[in-house]
Design a protein around this nucleic acid. Sequence first.
DNA 1: GTGGTCTAGACCACT
DNA 2: GTGGTCTAGACCACA
Lengths: 121, 121, 121, 121
Amino acid sequence: MNIAISNSSDKPIYQQLFEQICAQILKGELGNGYSLPPIRQAATELRVSIITVKKAWEELERLGLIYTVTGKGCFVAELSPDDMLQKRNEMILKQMVIDTSYYKSFGITLEETFELLKEVY
Amino acid sequence: MNIAISNSSDKPIYQQLFEQICAQILKGELGNGYSLPPIRQAATELRVSIITVKKAWEELERLGLIYTVTGKGCFVAELSPDDMLQKRNEMILKQMVIDTSYYKSFGITLEETFELLKEVY
Amino acid sequence: MNIAISNSSDKPIYQQLFEQICAQILKGELGNGYSLPPIRQAATELRVSIITVKKAWEELERLGLIYTVTGKGCFVAELSPDDMLQKRNEMILKQMVIDTSYYKSFGITLEETFELLKEVY
Amino acid sequence: MNIAISNSSDKPIYQQLFEQICAQILKGELGNGYSLPPIRQAATELRVSIITVKKAWEELERLGLIYTVTGKGCFVAELSPDDMLQKRNEMILKQMVIDTSYYKSFGITLEETFELLKEVY
DNA sequence: GTGGTCTAGACCACT
DNA sequence: GTGGTCTAGACCACA
């Protein structure tokens, strides 16, 4: 578990939690069947409420990235590398549709967007 | 004034207003010195609160895109095409830094990002 | 709003809330655009926590039965009678698959199930 | 003993155990006087806790489907085919009352329920 | 010990 | 006033 929480961010804490673990799973950093820390322990370590952790975990479960077994813990779902790549692109695309609609509202072309993107990377 | 407000969007209404007018100005659609409609009129037409319109106008003024003449109204600032292009890129870049940090958290490369971006456009 | 909460039930409160409002919407008792009571008011009236109401509302929104507008309230989505009927059957079928797997584990036939069902109705 | 345990199910494990053995007894698959495996052995084979098995066995005994002879083991009670059929229907009916109350909350008729039931079977 | 749920009260952004 | 979020502490069922 390597999570960074920012209180000053405009993103809700549970969202930050969700995104970071989601990214780690889809990067393959947390192997299949990996056991996530107990929500209470995670809450204490990250200095957030149990409910906040739970909300992030629930979203992960809804996406099929983890599964929880009552009384035992939460575990990373077993996904093939292909599944993971596809799910990763799905998530990024979904966000990209929103992001680009903003860029496009300024009348920017795809090529110009590429140019700016290169600067940022 | 050609504005589309969406209640179902997760963006606040004043932000939607701000972004759309901002884009129109920087695309050159609203010429120098163009007079924005009075706040009350805009609020009525768009069926939003006066406060909401005020907030959007204030943000535009803060960026130097419009200026207010008390008792007369709000007008589009006089910007050269170069100024507009630069300001446009500034605004897009600023947002792009945030957007790409999300993409990068998944370990995606610049090339892969290009690929996905093409799909979206 | 005509909701009955039971603390002794084995179902979580937010689930009871969700199911009852869901049923009322799909029965057409709450017309399109009907404004749900503010979560705080609902919480007070039903003597439950804000968070509990919120959780039920979230589930309703996830199913597309209501939509929330920050600062304004929550409203019943606009669904055609056909949409409602289909969604109703979807929900019942989903539960029925679980229920019948239990019946079938006893080796009961469809006809015998009908007989018992008649008794219950 | 032919039992399938699912961790991903929302039903507690002891409940799954209970239901499956119960069904097997009432289907007549486990004859009168059949000796259930010792708790420890069952726990090992099914990879569950002894406590979990114990809980399931207790529930079976409470219903009079098995009886324990201290120091010897647990045995399937002697029931006539009629007793078994009646007990089976009792158990199914009890669950059906709960299940149908959910269906009925959507305003569905008995006939419509039949239709959906046919699809599921 | 684990997850599942709930409460009461709080602060913030938006309209 | 509305929804959105968060905390701290609590009780329960399950393994």
